[in-house]
Structure formats: structure tokens, C-alpha cells
């Protein structure tokens, strides 16, 4: 099977500061890392490839230096990599990003499965995975903690929920996002690392993907970040204690009196 992993290069959260004047992220002098959740996507792809054969291709959209992120994942044994880089891609929202990624998946030829991390730690939207599925017109499942191929063309996903997990089965080709419970990403290997250093990574721009400039980047984005701000501190809270019936009674009274803090 051919599996594509979409990753993102993000600022290293350990060194991130918020500019108190502008309330925006200070990106200057901050190292870039592979989005931590994406390592689980890489591991998920390698586990599937190791078990069922085929190949894993890693892909990212970003500036030319995002190639470094691709090489880092190649050192774990990913087979191939593609960089989507074009000045026109800059400023893309999740719509434009997922559209661009979807076109690249199509260009890669028959792809059985696209795997993404559950979300990126900078934007935290968790929209690009599902967006990709929409643009590809494929089924998707989010928060996968275990992936298994069944009947040759179906993916069975154990999907993490707040209370346990659901088992979802969908027909391939499909998109899945995964969580940490997939398993720790493996350590880099010397042979893979040597290969990663030398491997030629193709760079595709908008033209390579048959996308018009107005479909990508800022121009192709339907949303816009108007303002970034720190949320105001929460108002006073009151913890209701006691037996369950007692608590319900107290809450009921507060609601009736319109005295629920924060409402």
C-alpha cells in the first residue's frame, strides 16, 4: 500500500514567547521542529508499511527550510518525501492548505491512505486532516490510536474518545488522523539517516499542482486571522460539593436564581 504522511514544521513550543504588546507569537530566533503530533503519524505509517508492505511518503507544505523536517522523518525509515513550496502558498488557511495537500496527494498517483497528526501545536485547528479528506472526496476518521488493514481494502481504526475508544471501519482510499497512543515514534537509524542526507526531495509549486494563484495561500483562504489575543481570566468559580443529589439541588437553585458564575 502507498501511505502518505502530511507533516508540519512548527516553532519549538519550549522556546515560544508571546509578544505582550501585539499578543502574537514571537517567531524570531525560535527553532523549528516537526509538529510533535506528526511523529505519531509517521510511526503509524511505518507500522502499517512494515506489516503490510508498500511505501510511505512524507509531505509538507512550507518554506524551503521545511525540507529539514522531511529529512528528519526520512531518518526513521520513511521511503520518499515531497516538499510543497511556493511563495504563492504563503498565508494559507486550513482550506487552502488542505486543498494544496490534496492536489499533491493526487499527483503522487494512487495513494491508499493519508495519515496526519491530530493537530498542529501552533494553530491547533485539527482541520487540515478532515479538510484533505473533503478535497479528496474520501472518508476520514480522526484520533486513531490503532490502525489495521482488513479485507485488503478496508481500514479498521480504533478511535480514541474521552471515555474509551470506538472502532470505525472505512473503505480505502481514506484519510486518518492519529494520536499519541499509536506508540512512540521509533529512533532514527544510521542507514536511514545516511540515505536521508542524500535523497533528492522534489519541490512542487502551485503550477506543478495545476492550482491557480487565487486558489492557494492567502488568496485562496476563506478565513483570516483578525486578531490574536490572550483570553481574559475566567471569572470566579464556585465548586459545588456534597452528595450528587445535594449538588444537583444546589446547582438547580443557583440556575433558578440566575447566579451561575461565568454565565
Amino acid at each position: 500500500m502507498h501511505i502518505v504522511v502530511c507533516i508540519k514544521q512548527v516553532p519549538d513550543a519550549k522556546n515560544v514567547r508571546i509578544d505582550p504588546e501585539t499578543n502574537t507569537l514571537v517567531r524570531q530566533g525560535v527553532d523549528s521542529i516537526v509538529n510533535p503530533h506528526d511523529w505519531y503519524a509517521v510511526e503509524a505509517a511505518l507500522l502499517l508499511r512494515d506489516e503490510y508492505g508498500g511505501k510511505a511518503t512524507v509531505m509538507t507544505m512550507g518554506p524551503p527550510q521545511a525540507e529539514e523536517a522531511l529529512r528528519e522523518t526520512l531518518a526513521l525509515g520513511v521511503d520518499e518525501a515531497v516538499l510543497l513550496s511556493d511563495r504563492a502558498f504563503a498565508g494559507a488557511d486550513t482550506w487552502a492548505t488542505s486543498l494544496t495537500l490534496a492536489r499533491a496527494v493526487e499527483k503522487l498517483g494512487p495513494v491508499d491512505l493519508v495519515i496526519c497528526g491530530k493537530q498542529a501545536i501552533d494553530g491547533d485547528t485539527a482541520q487540515v486532516g478532515p479538510g484533505l479528506a473533503a478535497h479528496l472526496d474520501q472518508p476520514y476518521t480522526t484520533y486513531g490510536r490503532r490502525l489495521e488493514l482488513v479485507d485488503g481494502d478496508q481500514l479498521r481504526v480504533e478511535r480514541l474518545t474521552d471515555f474509551g475508544y470506538e472502532v470505525v471501519q472505512m473503505a480505502l482510499p481514506a484519510v486518518v488522523t492519529v494520536v499519541r497512543e499509536i506508540g512512540d515514534p521509533r529512533m532514527p537509524g544510521l542507514k536511514h539517516k545516511m540515505r536521508a542526507k542524500k535523497l533528492e526531495i522534489p519541490t512542487w509549486g502551485a503550477a506543478d499542482l495545476d492550482l491557480n494563484p487565487e486558489e492557494v495561500g492567502l488568496q485562496g483562504s476563506f478565513t483570516q486571522v483578525v486578531k490574536v489575543f490572550s483570553p481574559p481570566p475566567r471569572s470566579d468559580r464556585e465548586m459545588i460539593t456534597g452528595e450528587v443529589e445535594e449538588q444537583a439541588e444546589k446547582l438547580f437553585k443557583l440556575l433558578r436564581a440566575g447566579k451561575v458564575p461565568g454565565l
Binding site: 529512533m187 532514527p188 539517516k193 542526507k197
Partner: peptide, 18 residues
Amino acid sequence: TEEQQMIREIAAKIATEK
């Protein structure tokens, strides 16, 4: 050499994380 540096990086990563 590049390869020696890679060996060092991999061993250090395993030592630190595992």
C-alpha cells in the same frame, strides 16, 4: 565525519530519550 556525527546524534538521542 558526517557519518561519525550521525552515529553520535543517534546514540545521544537514544541515551537521552530511552
